Amino acid sequence: MAAGGDHGSPDSYRSPLASRYASPEMCFVFSDRYKFRTWRQLWLWLAEAEQTLGLPITDEQIQEMKSNLENIDFKMAAEEEKRLRHDVMAHVHTFGHCCPKAAGIIHLGATSCYVGDNTDLIILRNALDLLLPKLARVISRLADFAKERASLPTLGFTHFQPAQLTTVGKRCCLWIQDLCMDLQNLKRVRDDLRFRGVKGTTGTQASFLQLFEGDDHKVEQLDKMVTEKAGFKRAFIITGQTYTRKVDIEVLSVLASLGASVHKICTDIRLLANLKEMEEPFEKQQIGSSAMPYKRNPMRSERCCSLARHLMTLVMDPLQTASVQWFERTLDDSANRRICLAEAFLTADTILNTLQNISEGLVVYPKVIERRIRQELPFMATENIIMAMVKAGGSRQDCHEKIRVLSQQAASVVKQEGGDNDLIERIQVDAYFSPIHSQLDHLLDPSSFTGRASQQVQRFLEEEVYPLLKPYESVMKVKAELCL
């Protein structure tokens, strides 16, 4: 049975990233139509530049190519590739079939990587351009969430054990800070992308030097003109047959890092959902379990974690691919890159769409948070109580021993009897502590235990987050809708 299948058929496997999760716009960027249309555009740009620099290419040939950029006979191309065992030459023939007058000058002087690699770089750039505003929107939604809850005390956790208090907004800023680093890295790697350009079979530009009869300047002009037509500021000066596969490492490393950030955020949300302090959106008709109707599973956060793990592992592909590119190139890269580049971007696209949807509907339960604080705060307040007693004339050592005994009794009630923490009640009825009984409410005010959390939130948002989001103001209103 021949390899390949009808990918629109229910009898043929289709990647869930495309069929179930990723956005239509990201799927289109990695589609065959987008790819092969870009090949034709690159052939047109090459012909236009070659004509401008004096090669015998007519206006009629150029116009014929322009008129057929979208006229792609995919069936013919597939048949040609089956016959020739070469995808680029299959599309040269297919393009030439609908451009008979231009057929002889299509791909003039070029090698397969002229269309293959340059198209990949265009796709990487455009895919990054799709991700950047999506990530900015996630940051914006979380920034709104953090600002609104900047002063809401909550129990902090280290080692997932109760620690000092923080605020809900401050905790959210930990998430935002990681995503801001990801946004900066995505922008950097996007701006650092260079075009492969017009380089020939081993990167020496020998074929173009021959076409222009040894004119170095025209060869350099050709490279520059096509690079500018493709919208790049610069091209690699040095290439082998391909652009260095280190570029793929750079791009997928940034995406993998984004995956790590999203995994951490969504894990926190899942843990908070278990504590009943916070939940992701839950639709009115949504079913959490087929057997347990009360369940409210954090399905979206779980999906993000599941896909983020996949995204983090994909960076190993370009690392290994770059390491086995012998001399000017081997074909070890080809099949692998067809999979890992598309999957990385479709996965990143999915987790950003999902995280935006989550961040637009996060639900906080202040009463649950308050109750958990009441359970733990008495123990945390013991040092403040000791200091207040010393100020009232008591002995630190005597007070410490009193607190120690009462704390152990209260802990026994919590752990052995399943009761509430009654340390404060014990202190309130103990005559030894009568000098500070009137101060206990103040000493137990949760806001006095959150330090500068709310001020940190305000400063972080104003100095770091809002300036970073400013270039994306025009796209901030787009909502994230999930079908599944």
Rank of each mutant, 00 (worst) to 15 (best):
Leu444Pro: 04
Ala410Thr: 04
Gln41His: 14
Ala453Glu: 07
Gln408Arg: 12
Arg309Ser: 06
Gln184Glu: 13
Asp398Ile: 13
Val405Tyr: 15
Phe232Ile: 00
Leu461Asp: 02
Glu81Thr: 03
Arg337Trp: 03
Ser261Gly: 14
Gly169His: 02
Leu174Met: 15
Ala260Gly: 10
Thr94Phe: 07
Trp45Phe: 14
His442Asn: 14
Glu80Ser: 13
Phe160His: 05
Thr94Gln: 10
Leu255Ser: 05
Lys415Arg: 07
Leu121Glu: 09
Asn384Arg: 05
Ala348Gly: 12
Lys199Arg: 04
Glu370Lys: 09
Leu468Met: 15
Leu440Arg: 01
Ser257Asn: 07
Val363Ala: 05
Ser261Met: 01
Gln63Leu: 12
Glu250Asn: 13
Phe345Ala: 11
Leu183Cys: 09
Ser448Val: 13
Tyr34Asp: 05
Glu343Asn: 13
Ser438Tyr: 09
Gln458Arg: 10
Ser412Cys: 11
Trp43Arg: 00
Gly361Cys: 15
Ser306Ala: 09
Ala78Cys: 10
Ala102Pro: 02
Arg234Trp: 06
Gly214Met: 08
Leu314Met: 12
Tyr365Asn: 14
Glu213Tyr: 06
Val92Leu: 06
Thr38Met: 09
Lys264Pro: 04
Glu64Trp: 07
Cys340Lys: 01
Ile424Glu: 11
Arg40Gly: 00
Arg194Met: 06
Glu250Thr: 11
Ile427Lys: 01
Asp59Thr: 11
Phe145Val: 09
Ile269His: 01
Arg309Met: 10
Ala143Ser: 13
Thr119Ile: 05
Thr347Trp: 03
Gln456Pro: 05
Tyr294Asp: 03
Pro435Arg: 09
Val189Ile: 13
Arg188Gln: 08
Arg245Tyr: 00
Asp223Arg: 02
Lys82Ile: 15
Pro10Tyr: 15
Leu468Asp: 02
Leu211Pro: 06
Phe345Tyr: 07
Asp178Val: 03
Glu80Leu: 07
Ala235Ser: 11
Met225Val: 12
Asp178Phe: 00
Lys66Gln: 11
Val390Asn: 01
Arg33Cys: 14
Glu463Phe: 12
Glu148Ala: 09
Ala103Asn: 11
His400Ser: 02
Leu131Phe: 13
Phe28Tyr: 12
Val324Ile: 09
Pro10Val: 15
Ala110Pro: 08
Val465Gly: 03
Phe345Ile: 10
Thr244Ser: 12
Ile369Thr: 08
Pro435Ile: 06
His7Leu: 13
Asp216Phe: 08
Gly394Trp: 07
Gly4Ile: 15
Gly5Gln: 06
Gln184Phe: 08
Phe327Glu: 08
Asn353Trp: 07
Gly5Trp: 11
Ile106Lys: 00
Thr166Ser: 04
Pro16His: 15
Leu423Val: 04
Ile62Cys: 09
Glu48Trp: 03
Asp333Phe: 00
